[in-house]
Design a protein around this nucleic acid. Sequence first.
DNA 1: GCCAACGTTGGC
DNA 2: GCCAACGTTGGC
Length: 138
Amino acid sequence: MAYWLIKSEPDAFSWDEQVANDVEPWTGVRNHQAKKNLAGMKVGDRAFFYHSNVQRAIVGVVEIVREAYPDPTADSGNWVCVDVKTVGPMPSPVTLADIKQDEALADLALVRQSRLSVCPVSAEHWQYLCRMGGWSGD
DNA sequence: GCCAACGTTGGC
DNA sequence: GCCAACGTTGGC
């Protein structure tokens, strides 16, 4: 299974809303690199839910429950979205500042390509970040 | 096919 | 609010 990180501006769609909705179509991605990553997601993959802009921290974990299908919010072009399901909140959110000052995470896509809204996370980095956030779930 | 201009994203 | 990074557009 693969791991990912998806970004959302809390003003547009927050973790609280994700928890309330439980399953949410992840729409609105309009970047080819991000689209490629969406298309590579499989059911059962896990993703960090990251708040960009205001809070800048990993605040929760979601699971992919539906693989890439045409984004209904796209008026043109063949953009895709996936459905994600709430798994649980990070016991202590991992902030971007924490990530940036840790050498082991220097080549995280989140750091290297700050504008990419859907990025892959290696298994090593996933486990590392889970430890930082106090995530003890499976 | 190159490059300048412009728009958007996101960190600070 | 500013700026850097990056994507897109359009003139040539």
